[in-house]
């Protein structure tokens, strides 16, 4: 489930990156790197688990599935927070700088 949720996030972010110039300006590509990188790595992990467990890999216990789903959502949230922090620090649109200078005056 973690792999699936991260993969879905990677696909959505890639579509957003491709279609929206504003998103590209806001460095959404950073999330693409994070989610695609993690998806590829978890895919390898899944392949090794499949090799060990066989078809049993596709029928996980409910508790494991809930825990993995919760982890997947947390991973996507963490990636979004990292991107948000980077975007606010790099401030590509100059919004933060503008807000700070406005407050000073």
């Amino acid at each position: 489930m973690t792999l699936l949720i991260t993969l879905i996030a990677a696909v959505i972010i890639t579509i957003v990156w491709y279609t929206s110039p504003k998103a590209r300006n806001l460095k959404v590509g950073l999330m693409c790197y994070m989610y695609w990188g993690a998806s590829i790595m978890w895919l390898v992990d899944a392949l090794f688990e499949y090799k060990e467990q066989g078809a049993g890999y596709f029928t996980p216990a409910t508790a494991d599935m809930i825990n993995d789903s919760f982890l997947g959502i947390c991973v996507v949230a963490l990636g979004t927070v990292v991107w948000l922090g980077t975007m606010l620090i790099s401030d590509p649109e100059g919004v933060v700088k503008k807000a700070l200078t406005e407050k000073k005056q």
Partner: peptide, 9 residues
Amino acid sequence: GFLWGGSGL
């Protein structure tokens, strides 16, 4: 970027 992002998560 791929490696840092993936290994971080």
